[in-house]
Design a protein around this nucleic acid. Structure first.
Lengths: 355, 355
DNA sequence: CTGAAAGCGCTTACAG
DNA sequence: CTGAAAGCGCTTACAG
């Protein structure tokens, strides 16, 4: 039999109420320092830990947060979730919360489960992650059920009062363009995604706005490539760019796309015996990457795996605070990760001699 | 206020006990079909879901399983955990269990938390994942606390009664060698890890044993390379192998290592204008990979990301059964994933013309 | 400083 | 077929 509150109370000849009060540091409970010490000591000696279920039932608080998402086929999403769960769980653990992870194949199942979560009082809050088309109805449902939640995404214009978080995509692309222009490049191509999603538009907007601001002109529309995260279309596009005459050929690349775009870029360059470098001469690139990422051959400045771990760390305190309702809540978080040198495998290529 | 059991009972003028009995399909409860239907209907109409805490308290069962691990620096571990959590959570959800994920920086914290889990009755079972040096003491502790658990790893000789799962590494390497020999290769090099861990020894043993069995001789010890999962040492080793005279040079590679070994292999070959292929002529390779993995240039047969998802799917039913104790428990699970063609980026390299 | 009592929302014999 | 009652293990006013 595991130790219960009454066991430690009995051992000390005290009432369970007192022991409970002391152990929980309740401030309307009075006990001598000596008694407190005895209680704490006895609890430790008996290896007492309150029953989670009993506490949840009497307190009406579970100290549990549920991370809910729809499973996506795109492996990049799964990877991001993996890192996120790892970091989120670690952060919440530190604050005394458990993280339960639940995923479903369909949006219907997600919505049904959110209903159940709310009415079975199985958690204190929910974290929603995924595409905006999915998370918006999910968040709406939780909102109507008065269940606290945090949602990943850019819902700031439609739902400014939601507790939401995402990257500051416009700012990130600004950093990218500033970096490339700072190196001395003026002909900058853009590789991005073709999807109609908030972050895609944000990245594109950031590129265009900063290009205008720093170079005084709109980007050359023939140097804008937007493709799925596959090697072939990116490779095709980049190799055409590199085959342009020198006056039209880009010398730098702003990447608002995935790892396949980077791989295509590096391979196209490798064909010409070139590789990326952070210099005014030759070719340079900067941009976002999925996690985990290493360049194969060269060097570049990247937002590493968009630092999803840091995103989790950044947002957790706000979530906890929102739950304890001690401070006014900041609703819209825009995270600005650091642009830094990418890890590189530095695989020697072409004519270079191997050791 | 959320609906409680008494609410639906009151609405139907029935006692809570009856409603509870019917809703839980208890077999010593008698109610007419009509009454049953009314109860189910009313529960649905009121959106009734029993309080998880109250159920846990009265039943002494939480329907929760906790996944505990120590955070490791190696990103490959994190990735594996990510995919695992995804799959495990999905599987358990289907069986009515919640998965809570907890990770800690140190082994001490893990052990302390396991203590707490056991004495706060916060879960029905624990899943342990990580290196055997960590999981062994963890499992021992849970064992002594009578907390059911499943542990990843190869503890079959030291603790045959533990509910444990891992890949059948010997068998996997057998498949690899059979595949390469089947293609017609006889000079097979081996790339592995240098660590003193169960799976490393298993892979190596599988390679040696099968080599002897199929080729009638021990492997050439100069064609055994065991390195950390980094490009440089693998690249160095493979390029030396490829520079050997034809009578000594390997034409095939059995990989019991990580993605860096594959990258090194492909790049070494690319220098020579070669790439991997599943043929008797040229170079072939087969082996294990970390998740997610694509070859850059060529083709090969691999155990894809060691199919950690399938491992989770494979093991969940046993875990659930162990908890309900309906069937005798199979303790040691050895999973045999399928050897299949690796995804490849098929990046055209070298003198090849781009479209 | 201390203790008896009610309540959280269920489940489960048990008596009718 | 049905209902009153005790119990799961805590917390929390409240009375002393």
């Amino acid at each position: 039999m595991r130790t219960r509150l009454k066991d430690v109370a009995a051992k000390l000849n005290l009432s369970p109420a007192l022991v409970s009060g002391v152990l929980n540091n309740r401030n309307n409970v009075w006990a001598s320092e000596e008694t407190r010490a005895r209680i704490v000591e006895a609890a430790a000696a008996l290896n007492y830990h309150p029953s989670a279920a009993a506490q949840a039932l009497s307190k009406g608080k579970t100290d549990t947060i549920v991370f809910v998402y729809r499973r996506l086929n795109d492996p990049a999403y799964r990877l991001a979730y993996g890192g996120l769960v790892d970091a989120l769980s670690a952060e919440l653990q530190g604050a005394g919360y458990d993280l339960v992870v639940t995923n479903f194949a369909t949006q219907e199942e997600v919505l049904e489960h959110l209903q159940k979560l709310a009415s079975s009082r199985a958690c204190d809050a929910v974290v929603l992650w995924g595409r905006e088309a999915d998370t918006e109805p999910q968040a709406k449902l939780l909102d109507s059920l008065k269940m606290p939640f945090l949602v990943k995404g850019r819902h700031e214009s439609s739902h400014p009062a939601w507790h939401q978080i995402d990257f500051d995509h416009e700012w990130m692309m600004e950093q990218v363009v500033e970096r490339l222009v700072g190196l001395g490049h003026t002909k900058i191509a853009y590789l991005g995604f073709p999807h109609d999603e908030g972050f895609v538009h944000g990245l594109r907007r950031g590129f265009f706005d900063t290009h205008r601001k720093l170079l005084g002109s709109d980007p050359d529309m023939s140097l804008i490539g937007e493709f799925e995260d596959e090697v072939a279309p990116n490779l095709n596009c980049v190799s055409k760019w590199l085959a342009l005459s020198e006056d039209r050929r880009p010398s730098a690349f702003a990447i608002g796309a995935g790892n396949r775009a980077w791989q295509a870029l590096e391979c196209s360059l490798a064909h010409l015996g070139e590789q990326l470098d952070n210099r005014a001469t030759g070719y340079a690139a900067a941009g976002i990457t999925s996690s985990p990422f290493s360049l194969m051959f060269g060097r570049a400045n990247v937002f590493q795996g968009i630092e999803i771990d840091n995103l989790a760390r950044y947002v957790t305190p706000g979530l906890i605070r929102a739950l304890s309702e001690k401070e006014p809540l900041q609703f819209v978080h825009r995270f600005r990760p650091a642009l830094s040198e990418s890890p590189t495998l530095a695989i020697p290529l072409g004519g270079q001699k191997l050791s």
